[in-house]
């Protein structure tokens, strides 16, 4: 239904602008706050226009961090976050690809049983199993390590399930052609299955990277050493610098920095992302 009455155009634009404003306004405030001095941010009314301290704040936040808050420089935390998010995304994709491959292409006893066991873990996210998982990680001595940060988040039913669906759409004849060409199972996996799932892998990477980057509760538990703090939990730490009023300019700068990598990932992988979720032709 396409209509060209001005009132419809007006109303639909109004609704859209309203929607954008709701989402964009807090981000704008974050940006504005990151461009003023600490003192300006505790005066009322709060500024709505950017100040001139952006680069100074940026330098301070990235390389020095918040003094007295017991937090390392944000640049350092971002590296931690990046390593954790990449480990989670890559690890999840690798494990899910392999387990989906096993479930779809191999016949072994209790195959469907294993599949359903993996599937059931959908009901057990980290938040639910947090105590036993912490116990295991602590006993393995993985507290305050990247392994401890990422491994418990790697096992993934969603991704396994998604790759299973992708593999099921790949015609059996391709497998048969590959067998006649002399490709063994691993060769088939590497030469044919992975290239054919590459758009799905990209889409999943985007989702998982953001998932990993945004982790809060788990890093909070397993890191006690400042050198392992991630940026998302770092923001919270900064607010708890008890004896003084919060340094809003730096906290907001940190928030801004924390938002950037997911935005970059989405922007640069958007095309692949959409193709991965919609493409059906094999």
């Amino acid at each position: 239904m396409v209509e060209h009455r001005p009132i419809v155009t007006f109303v639909s634009h109004l609704v859209l602008i309203f929607g954008v404003a709701i989402i964009a306004f807090p981000i704008w405030i974050t940006f504005v706050a990151s461009t003023h001095e600490a003192a300006r941010m505790v005066q009322i009314p709060l500024p709505l226009l950017p100040g001139d301290q952006f680069f100074k704040n940026l330098e301070l936040t990235l390389f020095k961090g918040l003094e007295g808050a017991g937090a390392p420089p944000v640049g350092f935390m971002m590296v931690n976050s990046l390593v954790m998010a990449l480990m989670i995304a890559v690890g999840k994709i690798a494990i899910s690809l392999i387990s989906a491959f096993a479930i779809v292409y191999f016949k072994f006893p209790f195959r469907m049983g294993f599949f359903w066991m993996i599937f059931i873990t959908l009901m057990l996210p980290v938040e639910v199993r947090i105590l036993p998982t912490f116990e295991v990680v602590a006993n393995l001595g993985m507290l305050n390590t990247y392994w401890g940060l990422s491994i418990p988040l790697i096992a993934s039913a969603t991704a396994t399930f998604m790759f299973r669906q992708v593999f099921l759409t790949i015609p059996d004849e391709l497998l048969e052609a590959a067998r006649i060409d002399g490709a063994g199972p691993m060769r088939f996996f590497v030469d044919i299955l992975i290239p054919l799932s590459r758009t799905n892998i990209a889409a999943l990477f985007v989702i998982l990277f953001i998932y990993g980057w945004n982790q809060y509760l788990w890093p909070l538990l397993v890191t006690t050493d400042q050198s392992m703090y991630t940026v998302v939990m770092g923001i919270k730490q900064m607010l708890e610098a008890a004896e003084q009023s919060p340094d809003w300019h730096q906290i907001m700068m940190t928030s801004l920095l924390a938002m950037l990598p997911p935005v970059f990932v989405v922007v640069f992988m958007q095309r692949l992302f959409v193709r991965g979720l919609t493409e059906t032709e094999k």
Binding site: P171, E173, L174, R179, I180, G182, E281, K282
Partner: peptide, 17 residues
């Protein structure tokens, strides 16, 4: 199949896309 010294042509061609 690969050891039987055969080659097969499939109905839907089964080319690697």
């Amino acid at each position: 199949p690969a050891e039987r010294d055969i080659a097969m042509v499939f109905q839907n061609y089964a080319l690697y896309p």
